[in-house]
Design a protein around this nucleic acid. Sequence first.
DNA 1: TTTAAAATTGAAATCCATTTCAGATTATAA
DNA 2: TTATAATCTGAAATGGATTTCAATTTTAAA
Lengths: 324, 324
Amino acid sequence: MNIAEIAKLAGVSRAAVSRYFNDGYISQQKREAIRKVVEETGYRPSVQAQTLRTKKTKMIGVIVPKVASASIGRIVEGVLSVLNESEYQALLAVTQNNPKRELEYLSAFHDKQVDGVILVATVLTSEHKRILKALSVPVVIVGQRLTGYCCVFHDDYHASYDLTKLFIEKGRKKLGYMSAIQQDKAVGAERYRGFRDAVRDMGYEELTDNFVIVSFSVASGYEKTKELLEKCGNPDGIICATDTMAAGCMQYLREHKIEVPKQILVAGQGDSEMARITDPPLTTVHYSYEKSGQIAVQMLMELLGQGEAALKEVKLGYHLVEFN
Amino acid sequence: MNIAEIAKLAGVSRAAVSRYFNDGYISQQKREAIRKVVEETGYRPSVQAQTLRTKKTKMIGVIVPKVASASIGRIVEGVLSVLNESEYQALLAVTQNNPKRELEYLSAFHDKQVDGVILVATVLTSEHKRILKALSVPVVIVGQRLTGYCCVFHDDYHASYDLTKLFIEKGRKKLGYMSAIQQDKAVGAERYRGFRDAVRDMGYEELTDNFVIVSFSVASGYEKTKELLEKCGNPDGIICATDTMAAGCMQYLREHKIEVPKQILVAGQGDSEMARITDPPLTTVHYSYEKSGQIAVQMLMELLGQGEAALKEVKLGYHLVEFN
DNA sequence: TTTAAAATTGAAATCCATTTCAGATTATAA
DNA sequence: TTATAATCTGAAATGGATTTCAATTTTAAA
């Protein structure tokens, strides 16, 4: 069943049938004739033929470091919920935090497989920037700020700052910090900077050896807690860059009979389900991950609609989550 | 840049260029001439034109109920890790547990958008079966067993059975069960059946009112725990269909000063990170979710390679995870 | 009633590759 | 050396839509 057959059955030209589906000029009678034939035959235009002709695939490439992660899962959920409502579909690529893969996909999408790209980023190297520049379709970056690109990200700095301030106001004097790699500007560098600045602004001595760097897993948080405790002497508070790390940290403290929050108060960031499950629950920060995914799609849609993309950079708010 | 231009530059016919890319008959000289031009121009054949001609999209439709879920996230991770290695890409559709959406996508993929479908299923209605039958591309179902279809699923029954047996062997005599909806054959019905059969086989009275049905969230597990406690009288063990529910249950018990495991021993299923984070950690069952995703792709690849699909049904093993 | 503007129409060109076909070359076996 | 098989080749058909163009019909304004 193709457009020619439908045209013949309806007694019109192929162009008319095409117009029928694309709201072109077409008289009532023909419209009705075509509608009838289409209904009877169940005809649907071939997506591939349309794509070949129009150069629009109606697909968005979504690149994520991993998918089995609370925060990223929520971003993806947000992206897809909005995409659901549109005519676009999502081509998902997982890089497994392998920069080579990330670049691969970025350029795979390059040859016009997709109409646009949403890049959920952790580390952005100069290589990334090079490829992004060469990308022929619009792109929106989620989770990181990159000057010159449309991006939606979180106020990591102030969130971490406020969290730290809260700890100090609660009387915690000696804080340790569990950080992500610094190459991750948002989750690594910014959150750590927020911590340090808060400590300094609150009048405490600015230490440079009160933190450890861990990777995004419970196990890693667990493993590095010992080192952090040693580095800090006897901290009475530990702030972590993510809930996942914090959960690992809690696990270590529990096993070593260190009382939380009595001896050490622990905070994570991300407001994941994990934060509510540890005993006691983690103090944490809520970042609007779903929302960032949703907004990313909206921005991309504006870019695709060739509107002059009013939104360029969107920084989302946050709020502290405290359990008593 | 299209095939015609390349052909002209290389001084050959378009057919020759096509053969160059598709390993057809072609002489060394022409091959070399084309290689050079392709290299210089950076030409890549148009995927859409190829698709139109060959009817192969090199895309797999992946339908999941949600993505921000530990178990499903792991399945998707498995699916994508294998797909990564192939020439196929994943078109992801999230149904948000909305059956209408699920059917929508299933039939959206129907018109040849994809070469095959992987359906991560929870509830399979007769409507599903109707659409599955009408599907013109091969499909593999993950997480549920459906006779007549290629599927990969877990041994939910025996896992739940063994878990229950373990509880009884440990001296727990009065067990409560937190179940998922029974329409979900695998996670709802089978796991509950395993529980009941184990209780009976171990010589205990078969009760019919020692369980509650909850949805897949921590909050729901929390809310329904009270009811379960009331229904059971004073249980000394609670087995849950998922870790998520179990985490909610733990939260309730903690808040109500019920000691775990002293008064009540709690088990989840799924071996998620959550299970290791609660205090004490949950007894749980490890299901190979990543693996099921991987195998699903392998099965689909066999179906696509028009091999006669040796694998039809795959049931994966499990093992108990106990923390001491 | 004219005239200008708006709506309607279908033929044909276009998008870009793959594949069949029939013929031409080259290699191998007899 | 000849017959046969194995390679190689390009013209043309094919897949299924959209869009331009020029012509025609309707409608609205003057």
